[in-house]
Design a protein around this nucleic acid. Structure first.
Lengths: 138, 138
DNA sequence: CCGTATCCGCGAGGATACTG
DNA sequence: CAGTATCCTCGCGGATACGG
């Protein structure tokens, strides 16, 4: 409730998140796991909600709705509702969303292309002795 | 776990391209907000821990350590410790990390390039009436 | 200066039930 | 089929203190 008047020190939360040049919020949205997958999927053309859910696999309805809402709100995807029974809703990329498709495809491709190398590196790292006995000379 | 061929029910492994094929964990790592920022930063050359922390801005020591550990473990960055006082540690991209630089730069560039359009779209969406009164006549 | 360990709040996100 | 609302858990991530 409104504890008015108390000299709450207001711990100077000076919006430290926007300190850097690049848009953090957008970066966070664009880098989101489901966003990358869904945008890549929609790159092949429009798809129904259930189709997307099935294609992505492992995504809950809640998360998919949230992801698609974000994409729609950001002007990256359009939502089309058909007044038909049973209800049919399709999603597709906007021109703006298609400009994002290329970068995200590159990221997805990189992951598929280098997952083996990364796994190997992880195995090597995991096999390391945990005692920090080696210091770089020099 | 190597029960091959057994009549395990295995409710049809969702054959979609996203469920099992693409590396979700790697996608999640690569898409991480701090990872994108740090990799982009290291693309300009090696940097000290404190330099990275200052350059990124708003990242806690804990998160930065965690991010750099992940990059090191995945073979994307190398950590160099100088046995000097005061301690000096530098991080730089590996050749593998440099191959990731291009895609992540593209993502970062896209964000900077389209943040205005996205903000506009958000404003438009935010101004919408919340009652869904428009159904597509399809 | 670099890194670890501990505590803890908060919100992401799954499961479920219900509406249109 | 598509979407919402509710509950509840779990771990992300900040704050702090300490070690090397």
């Amino acid at each position: 409730m409104s504890a008015s008047g108390s000299a709450a020190p207001a711990p100077l939360a000076v919006d430290a998140f926007s300190s850097g040049c690049p848009p953090r919020a957008l970066l966070n949205t664009v880098g989101d796991k489901w966003v990358i997958l869904v945008v890549n999927l929609l790159g092949d053309g429009g798809a129904r909600f259930s189709e997307i859910q099935r294609a992505v696999g492992g995504v809950s309805r809640k998360m998919l709705v949230q992801t698609l809402r974000t994409l729609e709100r950001d002007g990256l995807a359009v939502r089309t509702v058909y007044a038909d029974a049973p209800p049919r809703v399709t999603y597709s990329l906007t021109p703006l969303g298609q400009t994002l498709l290329r970068p995200l495809q590159a990221v997805r491709t990189w992951c598929e292309d280098h997952v083996t190398e990364v796994s190997s590196a992880q195995a090597v790292y995991d096999a390391r002795p945990e005692y920090t006995g080696s210091a770089a000379t020099g």
